[in-house]
Structures are given as C-alpha cells and as structure tokens.
Nucleic acid binder design. Structure first.
Lengths: 177, 177
DNA sequence: CGGCAGTGGTTACAATTGAAACCAATCTTA
DNA sequence: TAAGATTGGTTTCAATTGTAACCACTGCCG
C-alpha cells in the first residue's frame, strides 16, 4: 500500500491551518529529480548497452576499449600516459593492458631509456579491431545525439564541462562540509 | 614519447597531396569528446564525492541512501516497490534494506494480507537521519546547479530526459546492430 | 481441493573493482 | 657513489556488484 507521507503525523496542531502546500514535506528530496541520481542512471544505461555491444562483438570490456581508443590515436604510450588520458587508475590500466596483450590487440616493449617503463602500441590485429570498433562507437554516439537538436548538443557540451569542473573542485579542495 | 599517429605510415602515396586535414585520421575517436565516456566520468566524480560525504557522516552507501530517500517520502513500501522507484535491482535493494535494518534506520514488518511481502518504513532514528541528509544532498545539488545558468538548468533537464529515453529504447528493443 | 505458474525476497557464488602493499628501476642529494 | 625518496607497474586481498538458483507464499485453473 504505497501511501504518500503527509505531515499529518508530525505536524504541530497549532499550525494545522497552514497552507495546503505544506501537506507535502517542503524539504523532501525527489530522487527522480536529483541530478547525481539521474546522471548515474543515465550513465549506467548507456554504458551497459555499449559494454554489451563491445563484449559480444570483440570480447572487450569498457576499460580495455578505452585503452584501445587512446592507443588508436597515439603511439608509444606508457601505462602512466594512459592513466592521464583515460581517467582510469593505474590498477585498472594494468588489468586492461594485460587483457589486451593476451588478446594480441596490443604490444608491449621495454623502454631502453627507462627500464621501468613499458611502451604500448596497437598490434596489427589491434588496429584492425580498432578500425571496426570506432564506427560502432560512433553509431551509438550518433544515435544518442540524434535525440537532441543542434542547439541542445552544444548546450550539453558546455553544461558537461561546467559540471565536470565543479565536481573536480570537490575532489581537489575537499568536499563540501 | 607521446606521438600523434599520423596517416604517414598507411597513406597511399597517390593521395599524398591530399588536404592537410587528412593528417589526422578522419575516423579516429576522441575519447574526451565521446558522450558515453564523458557521462561516465562525470557521474563517477559526482557519485564518489557524495558517497564519501554520506559514508563519513552517516555510514550509508549510495544504494542505502536511495532507499532512505524513497522511504522518506512514501511509507509502507515493499522491496518490490523500491525496485520500481530506484532503478536498482532486487538484490541491491535486499542488501541495502538489510544494512538499514542493522543500523536501525528502517523497520520491517510482515504484510498480513500477503505473507511474502515485507512492509518497510523509516524508524524514528531513520527519520532523524533522513532529515539531516536531505539538506546535505540538496547542498550538493545546489552546488552543482550553481555552476549553470537558469537556462542551462532547464536545458539539462530536458536533455537528460531525451537521452534517458533513447538509452531506454536500446535496452527494450535490443541494441543497435 | 491439488497442482503449477508467478511473485517477493534471500542466498550463494562468480566476476569486478578498489586500496594498499609491494618490487624494481631511477632520481636526488650529500 | 650510497641512502633515501620517487616513479612505473603488478600483485594481493577485501569489498562491491551481478547472475542464477533458490525458498516460501499466493493465485489460478482444472
């Protein structure tokens, strides 16, 4: 029996004549309007759909795909470079790289100048796969963007930048308190 | 040595005089412009910041907080009702509920009409905590929204709805192929 | 009624993720 | 050039999450 909570059980009798709008707790939080919640649901839906597509077609996880996406554009990167470019942490990179090597999608070679570093590149097979994934990814992107007007696409772009910057502040300066 | 991949190694000599713009592979994918990636990074940053705040102050995970947020507004819900309202699956709900009960934030009672169902409500303690979390959540929301103009807030709202609907389509109709 | 399909919810187990410890190589500085 | 600090990357172990199987109960149909 889903019932709205009214204030009836906690309201002070003296204010019982208050405006009816008060019948809904003024500072309840509507989860479905709460931005962090909505972002999370949206992002999960999108990511899950795409993850399914990649794994079905190429046996790739999203982290592994991200690494491929970067290595498709830039060559001779180290794992640390990938950390910079992907917003993933080094453990995730390490795991993605080891999967990709097992699949022969990328190659790893020592950096003779600094023997801690490993130099990563797409293999030929990896390049082939990359060239087949990119259109698929773009198809998803286009399909999403297709639900927006040209104006909305620009708006979204700039809105995301602003929100990202704000959330980044939180991480840097410490949280709101 | 981070080097841009140019087409120099794969370009056909006959087209070497092509427009210089062609020096960047035309169908590379720029991860940092790719909407699913950006959504994921943004959502994770926001969620992590908030999760830290909730867990530090109230020992609550995000799933548990979502359950509280719903129970703060609606009473006498079953776990199945929560599934409907939160976009979480029933296992996640079950786990969140058991944590909340352990914390004495919610109460669980049998539904005599249907003995499979459990009726969930905030406890008094839970209501107190709820009333302290809501302002915190709103502070995060306001802080995020504070980086946007009034117009942008409306735009974002409608853009999210559209993207959500599209992503929902993917889940329903099966993926793009 | 008796059987069986469907619902509400939990449990068990595997896969994924995160944090910290760790190893190896390099850099710094005395 | 030896000692400690730093960097690059992997491993280990615990916590979180996802999937499937499961149990208990209800509701339907013969």
């Amino acid at each position: 029996m889903t019932t709205d909570n009214t204030r009836s059980d906690s309201v002070d009798p003296a204010s019982a004549i208050a405006d009816p709008i008060d019948a809904v707790r003024p500072d309840d939080l509507r989860l479905e309007k709460f931005l962090p919640y909505r972002l999370s649901v949206l992002s999960n839906r999108v990511s899950n759909a795409i993850a399914d597509a990649y794994s079905a077609r190429f046996d790739l996880t999203i982290p592994a795909w991200r690494v491929m996406a970067i290595l498709g554009r830039f060559s001779n990167l180290s794992a640390a470079d990938l950390v910079e470019q992907t917003a993933m942490d080094k453990v995730a990179i390490s795991r993605a790289v080891s999967i990709l090597i097992k699949n022969d999608y990328i190659t790893r070679s020592e950096d003779l100048a600094d023997r801690r570093r490993q130099v990563l590149n797409l293999s030929e097979l990896g390049r082939d796969v990359y060239e087949r994934i990119v259109p698929l990814a773009q198809q998803y992107e286009n399909d999403l963007m297709g639900s927006l007007s040209t104006d909305e696409r620009q708006q979204l772009d700039s809105i995301i930048e602003k929100l990202m910057a704000r959330a980044q502040d939180w991480a840097n300066r410490g949280l709101i308190d």
